[in-house]
Design a binder for these strands. Structure first.
Lengths: 191, 191
DNA sequence: ACTTACCCTTAATCTAGTTTAAGACTATTT
DNA sequence: AAATAGTCTTAAACTAGATTAAGGGTAAGT
């Protein structure tokens, strides 16, 4: 709980009343490795704050291959906003890569906070804006650099994550096969 | 001006006071075809609402090729949020594809509205969330479908835009060359 | 400690999409 | 009305990255 309160201190920090409203509505859960927070076809019902561990959110194409959209580790938020807000079945999976502990807000609780404390509108606006910026940079990179460059950039941007994740997951995030990533890695160390 | 007021009616609609606060701060501008709203290296200083016409936002890779991140036409918002919020030089261009008329909010005015009328925090939160969802779907599609499928999807999703835009711009948006798009189009009509 | 399942690598073959080049068409500007 | 600049197409040669296959390594769960 301290984690999430400190998290909000980065934005407009919460007063006594807001903190109480938030913490009384959060549900703490432990998620095992390989357990799902969300599966294709489900309605996404929660906005999830990661206290510990790491999740991947991915889609599966018609040939059954997984494509990682993002990872969420400590102090990050994760949800399929499309499903959560538009109330339609998700086309995505959210799966624990490590044993995780999380704090969850239901859609109803989120709305309660938005309606009664404008600060949450503000803070979540900023949080979503930051995520939008990340996604925009990722899309631009996907179009304008080679797999080799994208891997180098991933290592530079997420050095800690790159050590925790199996290469097969990184490959899926970069939009390449594990075999090709292996080749790239080999060329790097060969220098 | 009526356009933008109607635009906000989709969300929490504005009362008299909010409407006045908004409209008194908007600056109307005409932008000619091929004129830039933003160039690489500039600071993005405005959030721009498109009343008429169409813009493209794109990045240029080191070999000089353009990669379209998005188009913004009537009733849409456009800005490089990264540059606007983080106050760093943009790596993007925003250029008019058609003669345009826009309404602009400066960063300071935006902040004034956020601070004095929480409804703007709410409405812009929802606007950015919708744009996040769009981008997330686009990224997933880029990873998990062929160029042929992405083109078909683009036609289905933006039928009106596809008629207004030259194919070379659509190709750049899909992440392929105009030559390859021409081939795809040829295969389609050949059926 | 065992074992099962995942993970990493290498290498040969293959393919979706790029590059280069060239010609015809079509807007926009003067 | 001419001229210039952007647009669309076709086709041949090429390349980044996929696929298939196979062997060895390493970590998780029992």
């Amino acid at each position: 709980m301290e984690n999430i309160v400190r998290h909000f201190d980065q934005y407009l920090s919460l007063n006594e009343e807001e903190r109480e409203a938030l913490t009384s509505r959060l549900t703490a859960r432990k998620i095992k490795r390989r357990q799902f927070l969300l599966q294709e076809g489900d309605l996404c019902k929660h906005f999830t704050y990661v206290v510990e561990g790491c999740f991947k959110m991915y889609g599966v194409d018609k040939s059954g291959k997984e494509h990682n959209l993002l990872f969420a580790a400590e102090d990050d938020w994760i949800a399929d906003l499309d499903s959560l807000h538009k109330e339609r079945p998700s086309s995505l999976f959210i799966e624990a890569i490590e044993p995780c502990s999380v704090l969850q807000l239901s859609k109803g609780d989120l709305w309660y906070l938005y309606t009664n404390f404008p600060k949450f509108d503000r803070n979540f606006r900023v949080i979503v804006e930051d995520k939008y910026i990340e996604l925009q940079n990722r899309l631009l990179q996907t179009f304008s650099s080679t797999a080799y460059e994208r891997y180098a950039f991933f290592l530079a941007q997420y050095p800690q994550l790159s050590l925790r994740l199996p290469n097969t997951q990184i490959a899926s995030y970069l939009g390449i096969t594990p075999e090709f990533l292996s080749k790239i890695r080999n060329e790097r160390t060969g220098k």
